[in-house]
Design a protein around this nucleic acid. Structure first.
Lengths: 187, 187
DNA sequence: CAACGATTATTCCACGTGGAATAATCGGGT
DNA sequence: ACCCGATTATTCCACGTGGAATAATCGTTG
């Protein structure tokens, strides 16, 4: 029975893996890293174990066995339950349908930017622009790789979304800098 | 002396107010709400008191007096220190110059969307679109208000940023829906 | 073949957040 | 004159996160 508290992003990612097949937390960790899912969800080993533990408490997954290799710590394998499958799709539905304010820090930063001189702000934004440009190129090369590898497009639509958003931010910053530097925007 | 841990968004907002004049936490709370800063920073009374307490521990602010009105709880007034002013501008510089991944949930949601049927996804995104459109209109009316009130533009540049980003998300979703509905994107 | 670092696998603790609890006083209606 | 809800003002607790700690084993280089 999924209790009051809503599925955490990492919890969702874990369930997503368990939909494919039962596995133990460390395998989840490896898969998430190997698939570069850590670009979408913050993945920390400690947090992952806690997350899976909570999923179990909530009845969304069940420990279905333990094995051990050599003298290493015992590994607990988890399996998703029907309630888990239900909670999984429900959460995805919610996240798609309802936008939520997640308080990104950049808007806050520009809202406080008036505390710095205009030319300093413009210069700092130059630094940001190069970093954003780099991210964009990284995404483009990633897309290229997935395309040539023949991975179905439905598995990487998020990359195109990220590209669009990056481009929008870059464009906005350029416009803002112009206004700052031309003096069109009094500072 | 600003210690290892970086200024929290709410900590930054608090410092920003203390740059204007000394005040007590509850006054900060009122001001943040009155100025609608809670659209940029998550503001919870409990968190605010903790945040200010930490600022004090870090030497960025100092308690410079207590007064009480009637039999209400004692109010502690805080003043920003030079170290505080320094940490304040430094943090803004950082936030402007260096983009950080903040793991918004929508990209995760679309990356998991392949778990749902295409027409369901398109429908959920319709709901999202109406919500986003509403937000956009809200921002536009806010901008209108500030403009007629004659508030200097440098104090609300973040509104224009938010508008641009909203428009970009809306545009991307439209494109995505088209690809889903036309079958151009195999699902 | 020994040493050393990387990998496997998990636990634990400190911190920041958010919501509830508390408690007094003020304002408005009846 | 009295009651009720909103406002003033702060404290406290439970939860999720992140980083460090732990500890064994595997792979690699000299």
């Amino acid at each position: 029975m999924a209790r009051g508290t809503a599925l955490t992003p990492l919890g969702l990612a874990a369930l997503s893996l368990l939909v494919e097949e039962p596995m133990h937390p460390y395998e989840m960790y490896q898969l998430l890293i190997a698939r570069h899912e850590d670009r979408l969800v913050k993945v920390r080993p400690g947090t992952l174990y806690h997350a899976v533990g909570r999923l179990e408490e909530q009845g969304l997954v069940a420990a279905t066995g333990t094995d051990r290799e050599g003298n290493r710590p015992e590994r607990t394998t988890y399996t998703i339950s029907n309630a888990g499958r239900e909670a999984f799709t429900t959460r995805i539905r919610d996240m798609l349908a309802a936008p939520v304010n997640e308080y990104p820090s950049f808007p806050l930063a520009i809202s406080e930017a008036y505390n710095l001189p205009a030319d300093v702000v413009a210069g700092l934004l130059d630094q940001r622009l190069t970093a954003l440009q780099e991210q964009l190129e990284y995404l483009e090369s990633g897309e290229e790789l997935l395309r040539t590898k023949g991975v179905e497009r439905k598995y990487w639509v998020d990359i195109q979304y990220q590209q669009s958003m990056l481009q929008a931010e870059i464009a906005w910053i350029h416009g803002f800098q112009d206004q700052l530097r031309s003096g069109e925007l009094p500072w």
